[in-house]
Design a binder for these strands. Structure first.
Lengths: 339, 339
DNA sequence: CGCCAAGCGTACAACGTTGTATCGCCTACT
DNA sequence: AGTAGGCGATACAACGTTGTACGCTTGGCG
């Protein structure tokens, strides 16, 4: 059995509450007793029982992070950033996977018993639809990542997807490309990164006086690498010529790149390529991958800030939900080098 | 305030303990009362307070996973597997990063207050040295991943690194290569994956009657992609010819691959390449990367099995530490295609 | 000299849950 | 018919912590 406040109190010859005060730096305690108590703490190797503390205080010091899949580089790096940022504030992170955004799993996760274990949740929704919006009304602090479920009455961190999509597209036009394809679109969706980035794409084409061609747009359900490869094969099969490609994330881009190379199409001279997310791997692919950096550390910081303000009650429940946006940055690498 | 057993009990007109029994499926409860209680539970949306349960039972239902860095694909995929396996058993995983295996951080993490929050820890040590072995003697269940700290008196999951290193090397020899380079060695270390895989490499060379050449061995500290690139440049600078390369993990392999291609050296015709870890990305690189699959799901399962046996007391404390080994598999892809 | 305030510490209760002991009642057996 | 036995349910305590309310000193001041 581990040492308790009781043990320390007895050892130091003071009351249990005094020890508690010393440990937490609360109340007024004379230097002498503090000294004595700290000595006992060290000697007995006392460490507070976090379960008891949680029970008493109602706080666990744990925040949840729900993401589709940890093995996707983007989410792994996001989780990394969140853990890092949480640690700065003495919090710890419980990661839950929704497995490619299965709706049922997402709902279970929102209402499951584990919410009792966390002070709040950072949630990147994927499978839930607008009909499920009210399910987000869980009793505890919640921050959404991304634009899905736009009607939700909840704090949210997003990025400027429209502007970023436009900037990515523009970076291809700027090096002289005129037939810019795009893969990863969700044409039927009402909202989401896919919709917004596509809007940006369309907008950039228009601004530069380029025509929007439906057969240069490929829809892709899940933005996995294998789907990037598949989408590229489909695009090639259509026979419509193109000299640039905007992939809605780096996984798609790398999958597409692989197929382009198989087909002997040179990147960037034949087809310039830009991805999205600035995943580490893009720095080392051949050619290295131009991309959009979404500002992950900033996203993590904003999400935790919002969450903590609700948890700490700094922001009361009746304050309207807020939305913070991270700043993005175009990163030009070899895959968009001017010919 | 959320509903408690008390509320449910009052609502259903039974005692608090009866509700507890129903919720946990313990004791004998008549079908009628069970029914009534469950109805109240549903109606009041009762969810047990996990802090209170932990305090009472001494269990948190949380296990810790300490790894160097989540943004390394290998560890992200490992974490994925551990979370998945834990979930099967109703457990949840708290991930802590040691940031590239900083010794101080590792030690802090072992003794920190968060151990109070977890029932046990799965730990992939990196920075701690043999002098630190006794620090592993924390009061709670612990399972090590990998061969480091070999003298530790602790359960452990490893893989057959020597055999796997030999098999990887042999797969290069089998397609006719005779000058097999290796990158990622730690020649001065006494133990660790690097040492064992290198042993396998040496052993395979000997078995096939090939000479071990020191200038085909490149040491690499951290097995990051950038270091793979650096190591490859160093190897090329030495001018010693080679026709195959065994990289001690896939990150190194992909970094090296990038440099080989920059130098116009074809893979696999000029240099055959095999990595280690079977990271997802290797399937989509060009050429796709041959590798060693370490059996991650099996590793996760074994680690959790060992941990749970200690947690549940099935295995008493005085049972000697056990070591389980996963089964590996060579995966042949384009990068080792016979010429 | 007596009183009061401030400074330090203490006792007690409560957070929500579960294990232990116990009790009442109905059934079934002698 | 009386009772043993088991089933169903209950009361109570305890897990380790912290907030509240209070009590004991001591020193300064009237």
């Amino acid at each position: 059995m581990s040492t308790t406040l009781h043990d320390v109190a007895r050892h130091a010859g003071v009351s249990i509450k005094t020890v508690s005060n010393v440990v937490n730096g609360l109340g007024r305690v004379s230097a002498a007793t503090r000294e004595r108590v700290l000595a006992s703490v060290a000697q007995l190797d006392y460490r507070p029982n976090l379960s008891a503390r949680s029970l008493r205080s109602g706080r666990t010091g744990v925040i949840g992070l729900a993401i589709p899949e940890l093995s996707l580089a983007y989410f792994a790096q996001l989780a990394d950033a969140v853990i890092e940022e949480a640690e700065q504030r003495g919090l710890v992170v419980l990661i839950e996977q929704t497995r490619g955004g299965d709706r049922t799993r997402e709902v279970e996760l929102l209402r499951g018993p584990r919410r009792q274990l966390t002070d709040g949740l950072i949630f990147s929704p994927f499978g839930m639809t607008e009909a499920d919006t009210e399910l987000l009304d869980i009793g505890s602090p919640l921050v959404l990542l991304g634009e899905r479920l736009p009607d939700a009455n909840v704090d949210r961190v997003t990025m400027r997807n429209v502007e970023a999509g436009a900037a990515a597209t523009a970076s291809l036009v700027r090096i002289g490309r005129e037939r810019v394809a795009v893969i990863g679109a969700h044409l039927d969706a009402r909202m989401g990164s896919a919709v917004l980035r596509y809007d940006g794409y369309v907008q950039a084409l228009r601004e530069h006086g380029l025509e929007l061609r439906d057969d240069l747009v490929v829809e892709v359900d899940l933005w996995h690498r294998s789907n990037g490869a598949k989408a590229m094969r489909e695009l090639l099969a259509r026979g419509e010529p193109f000299d640039a490609l905007f992939a809605m994330n780096d996984e798609l881009a790398l999958g597409a790149l692989r197929v382009l190379q198989e087909e002997g199409i040179d990147v960037p001279s034949d087809v310039a390529l830009i991805g999205f997310d600035n995943v580490d791997e893009g720095r080392f692919s051949r050619p290295s991958l131009s991309t959009v950096d979404p500002g992950r550390p900033e996203i993590a910081k904003m999400a935790i800030d919002l969450l903590l303000e609700r948890i700490d009650g700094v922001t009361s429940d009746d304050v309207a939900p807020r939305e913070l946006q991270s700043t993005f940055r175009i990163i030009e690498r070899e895959s968009t080098q001017a010919a």
